[in-house]
């Protein structure tokens, strides 16, 4: 309990982000119980404005917008989290392996990462989705996950490299810990905030990506998600005929949820400390890090000087 308070103290973005994201998770999970109508059935006349019966109005085909947006959340959130998970797992595996193994493996994995990094993401995904035809949520999660890791992998590698240099890793080697245990038990737990940050970042990208793909009509239009809601609203010229609620509601849902994820991501960035247990330690970690940097500089300099001495 205490550690939770300590975690959120002075970290407003993380707190706000958590509240938003958890509210969305809760609402989506409870959709079958709190949605006033069946989201897939015609329950009223088309394009009814918000009223007591239909708080957020109805769609062109007479479905309840509130019920739809709640059910759609289940799909959109699932795709976001699943794809975030895929991207994060790949990023951790590649980044940490690259850093810890080094040498040729490192060079190859970083080459691969850089290739993926410079690939124009969304256009490529659009082409791929178009090629696959109407893609369902599962395929979207996979595609977005498989393209969403390179940025994360680079950051993971950088952090794993810096943790690898810490004395506690050397100490673990000296007491005889095995390599994989050093990675999994000694290094990875120190990367928790970065991993969570990468996950929220990737999930954010996936939610937006899914909405974009579905909005332009590459998704499966029979699935109820925020993206397809936007697609149908656009298809039925909701804004032109004055049924603003039909388009605004899913749009706002995407925007607010994305903001929640972005805030959470920011909050994680603020915690440069891998241990989430106290601010005292945070300072210590920063100090350590500074010293390490200074040390490395010194070493580089001495090497440079050595080079000059030899040449001179």
């Amino acid at each position: 309990m205490k550690s939770i308070f300590a975690f959120y103290r002075g970290n407003t973005p993380a707190l706000m982000g958590s509240i938003i994201v958890f509210t969305f998770i809760l609402l989506s999970a409870l959709a079958p119980w709190i949605a006033p109508y069946d989201a897939e059935k015609r329950v009223a006349r088309g394009h009814q404005p918000p009223s007591a019966e239909h708080i957020l109005g109805t769609t062109r085909s007479g479905k309840d917008v509130l019920s739809q947006v709640l059910y759609a959340g289940r799909i959109s959130l699932t795709v976001g989290f699943a794809s975030g998970l895929i991207a994060t797992v790949i990023a951790v595996l590649l980044g940490v392996t690259s850093a810890y193994v080094g040498g040729r493996v490192d060079a190859f994995l970083m080459f691969l990462t850089n290739v993926f990094l410079v690939l124009p993401g969304l256009p490529l995904i659009v082409v791929l989705a178009a090629f696959l035809g109407e893609v369902g949520p599962l395929s979207i999660a996979l595609i977005l996950g498989l393209f969403g890791w390179p940025g994360g992998a680079r950051v993971m590698r950088a952090q794993a490299l810096s943790i690898r240099e810490k004395e506690f890793v050397t100490a673990a080697e000296v007491i005889g810990e095995s390599k994989w245990r050093i990675v999994v038990v000694e290094i990875l737990p120190n990367m928790v905030s970065l991993i969570v940050g990468t996950f929220t970042g990737a999930a954010l990208g996936a939610v937006m990506g899914q909405a974009a793909l579905e909005f332009i009509g590459l998704g499966d239009p029979n699935v109820i998600s925020w993206g397809t809601m936007l697609f149908w609203a656009q298809n039925n010229s909701a804004l032109i005929v004055g049924a603003w609620w039909d388009a605004i509601v899913p749009g706002v849902a995407i925007a607010v949820f994305a903001m929640g994820l972005a805030l959470l991501n920011m909050g994680m960035d603020q915690i440069s400390n891998p241990q989430l247990k106290g601010s005292k330690n945070l300072k210590q970690w920063k100090k350590l890090n500074d010293e390490l940097q200074a040390n490395r500089k010194k070493k580089q300099e001495s090497r440079k000087i050595a080079g000059e001495v030899v040449e001179g």
């Binding site: 004395e167 506690f168 673990a172 007491i175 005889g176 120190n190 210590q284 970690w285 010293e291």
Partner: peptide
Amino acid sequence: VQMIFQDPYGSLNPVHTIYHHLARPLLIH
């Protein structure tokens, strides 16, 4: 043959308890 490091702030893993730090060498060996 064991080693003690200069920086006591760096040579213990911040995410693990003292118990873990002593349990590991006992288990490994």
